[in-house]
Nucleic acid binder design. Structure first.
Lengths: 138, 138
DNA sequence: AAGGTTTTGGTACTTTAGTATGAGTACCTT
DNA sequence: AAGGTACTCATACTAAAGTACCAAAACCTT
């Protein structure tokens, strides 16, 4: 929850600054009202983006052809599924780590969990099983 | 060609033995003619099997959905393709070696050649590329 | 029979993958 | 606020995978 608090605090501060700025502008008549409105619009735009991101984060985004219920049934998390998708693209743990902006250790942990959940001994076997379960599009 | 020569030699010997046996039977009247005929039929049946196997061996047996011309175009040999198919089943080199009755070294050699021919760094990448090239079904 | 390709396999390494364990932070639910 | 889950990351291994090079036998074609 810390991040959320910080983000909203920052936004509120930004808004206050903008309102103060707006007040000052009214006095000096230096900055046009349109700029203020545009700035406020921008802030709210980013608030919208942020909220949207928060909400979108809850679900696992998967192609329509795959069965997202099965993913949940297997206890595969959103991040683990992402790793699985990248494995199916033929990427190494190191490459996956770079594209997901995490360490290779983290990827290895996800892979290890995936292997258990898919009852596989190797990533290639995990791919085969995932496709059989229609968790990955062919 | 050695194997072929040995196999045919063995078959000819078997035939000669059968004919001799047939001669003996005629004298003794011990074994019925039907048995002789059945035996000869059996021998020719196996000759047929052998020839068929030889002929079938020439081509690469692949599912109808895959493009066998592309396999040839990539210079992938019959044995290499077999290994590729087993990789797509999620098998390890050791497991592939056991099912193909060869050593793990041999499998590694085939895999290494496959990676070069498919321009891949890993077996998972080889799978992805093979599917893109419609060399593997899915 | 000669020559090219395929298949086989070994040795000796280097590089990835995967396991086991522990642990801190973030997030969500109750 | 507490508890559970997800995500992150590290260390220290063990186990596969993959590379490089070489070499012999088998096979096919000419």
């Amino acid at each position: 929850m810390k991040k959320t608090i910080f983000a909203f605090s920052a936004l509120i501060v930004a808004l206050l600054v903008l309102f103060q700025l707006s007040k000052y502008t009214y006095v000096s008549g230096d900055i046009s009202m349109e700029v203020i409105i545009a700035a406020i619009a921008l802030v709210f735009f980013f608030i919208g983006l942020y909220i949207n991101k928060k909400v979108a984060k809850k679900g696992i985004s998967v192609p329509s052809s795959v069965d997202s219920k099965k993913i949940a049934a297997l206890g595969i998390s959103k991040r683990e599924y992402e790793v699985l998708v990248h494995i199916s693209k033929g990427m190494s743990n190191q490459e996956i780590a770079e594209t997901l902006f995490v360490s290779e250790s983290t990827v290895k942990t996800h892979v290890s969990n995936l292997l258990v959940k898919l009852d596989a001994k190797r990533r290639t076997e995990a791919l085969k099983k995932a496709k059989e379960l229609q968790i990955l599009s062919n």
